[in-house]
């Protein structure tokens, strides 16, 4: 893992679509909270920045069980903002490159290694699996040409890595922040996000033997 990259884990949101009544960082997947999964998968990373908002104190308490050398970044306006604002806040005073990592996304351990060993900027995507997704359109080398709500070859999942100074404050989502810099190198990964209850049960099954 190159030390010049920060990993920004976004955990500020409410996670209301899941309907479990708590922030997604704290829901248990196979006995382990989602944030604990991220910390295990990212344990080689020196500069981890966790963006918190809803249930911040509970997330802090959970994180401190595993490591105390992270930087907690507050997004006090988590109710009015989306992932773009959290990524901006998390990255703005970090290292020169920032890897955006959704707190509710589980990435296969081997692919985590690939991501952390890849130099420079990139965007990760996965096989289509969600009903409601943002898609990526790629060229024959797998580079990302465009994002689309309608159609594309793969599903946009993140993570993505970009130079910190290119990340502008956004009231939208992370893919909106990346759009001005396309095309970007693409990496196909095995990644599953948890937005709905059916995602949740499916991810439990998939990740059973991951760690």
């Amino acid at each position: 893992m190159s030390s010049i990259k920060s990993v920004v884990i976004s955990c500020a949101g409410i996670g209301s679509r899941l309907g479990l009544g708590q922030t997604k960082a704290l829901i248990k997947v196979n006995g382990r909270s989602l944030i604990a999964w991220q910390l295990e998968l990212l344990k080689e990373v020196e500069d981890i920045r966790i963006v918190i908002g809803y249930q911040a104190n509970d997330i802090i308490e959970e994180v401190l069980k595993y490591r105390n050398d992270v930087v907690f970044v507050y997004n006090h306006r988590y109710f009015e903002t989306k992932t773009g604002a959290s990524f901006y806040l998390g990255a703005q005073h970090g290292n020169d490159f920032a890897i955006e990592w959704d707190g509710d996304l589980l990435v296969h351990p081997d692919d985590v290694k690939t991501i952390l060993n890849t130099e420079g900027e990139f965007i990760c995507y996965a096989e289509k699996s969600s009903d409601e997704a943002v898609y990526v359109q790629t060229d024959d080398k797998g580079n990302v040409l465009a994002f689309s709500r309608e159609t594309g070859d793969y599903e946009w999942t993140g993570p993505a890595c970009i130079m910190r100074d290119k990340i502008k404050y956004s009231s939208g989502n992370v893919f909106n922040q990346l759009e001005p810099y396309l095309p970007l190198k693409g990496i196909k990964i095995r990644a599953y996000d948890i937005d709905t209850y059916s995602d949740y049960t499916r991810v439990m099954e998939i990740t059973k033997n991951w760690i």
Partner: peptide
């Protein structure tokens, strides 16, 4: 905490 930008529990992380 409500007016905090960064919360840090570790000396090395603070220096970083």
């Amino acid at each position: 905490l409500p007016i905090t930008d960064y919360l840090i529990f570790n000396e090395e992380a603070l220096c970083r």
